[in-house]
Simulated scan of single mutants.
Amino acid sequence: MTSKSTESTPQEDLAPRQPSPPRVNAVTAEDITASLKAGFADFLSRPLMSGFFGLFYAVFGILLIWCLVWLDMLWIVIPALVAFPLIAPFAAAGLYEMSRRLQRNESFGWSDILTVMANQRKREMGWMAFVTLFILWVWFYQFRTVLVIVLQDSSFSDLDGFLNTVFFTPEGWTFLLIGTGVGALLSAVLFSATVVAMPMLLDREMDFITAMITSFGVVRKSPAVMLGWAAIIAVTMLLSMVPAFLGLVFTLPILGHTTWHLYQRAVAPVEA
């Protein structure tokens, strides 16, 4: 009598494998220095094309402030100046692509870079823009709320009067203290969410949630170094805005190229 034995075969998992989240590396001060050197080298290799993105960003800033003054929206000038550097990652998208191609020794022209930028509207970078705009909306809303509560008894009819009230009265100092604290918190959140997320979304096929989580992971793994990098960006951008925004023609491209190289060091390559 023969017994028919049945062998259990492992059931194949028909569900598609989920890609593992990107692995983040610890970032050191040497990584920041090396990325800055590489970013400056990228700028020097294509100064006209890099400078174009800086010029576009600077002109946008000039027009933005001019429109606010023309519309007598004086109260929003200061938060707009503070928040303006926070949208730099979007202006630097073309710079990320330039650095990526330079790193691979690929030739490229204007049409190549602009086409890649235009194609981002079909990918996840649009959702990152939504996140950024939402945080900026919260920033402007809280600024106006604090303005109404703290400076309700103050009056100013022009920009000089507004600045004098803010910087030379006790109420203005209170307003600056509260507004700076809230603004610093929102800026830290936005910086942590986008510092490597923007170049990562341009470089890889992934969702914006994963990109933001990875970006937060980079900041969490090297908080002191990344805080230093945030300070470098903030000080450089704000000083570049002093001479009628024209300093951004040079500093934005260098910082944009640098961000690409820092992303390459902070996030491990895709595992095959």
Rank of each mutant, 00 (worst) to 15 (best):
P243T: 09
V196S: 02
L147I: 02
S3I: 15
M206N: 08
T165L: 09
L151S: 01
I62Y: 04
T165C: 05
F167P: 01
A211S: 09
I78Q: 01
V242C: 10
V270L: 14
V24W: 00
G179W: 01
A197L: 08
L239K: 05
L71C: 10
I76R: 06
L136E: 05
L36M: 15
A268Y: 06
G172C: 04
F245D: 02
R123K: 09
M241G: 13
W229A: 13
F216I: 13
W229F: 15
F40I: 13
F84C: 04
E205W: 06
K122V: 10
S5M: 12
Q18D: 13
V166T: 04
F168I: 06
I254V: 14
T132N: 10
V77I: 15
L151C: 03
T169R: 03
I135K: 05
G217R: 02
L238Y: 10
P79C: 12
S157G: 12
E171K: 10
D13Q: 11
Q103A: 14
L86E: 08
V24G: 01
T165F: 01
A197W: 03
F60A: 13
M1S: 15
R144H: 12
M206E: 11
S215K: 00
D153C: 04
E30C: 08
G161Q: 08
A15D: 14
D42M: 07
P16L: 13
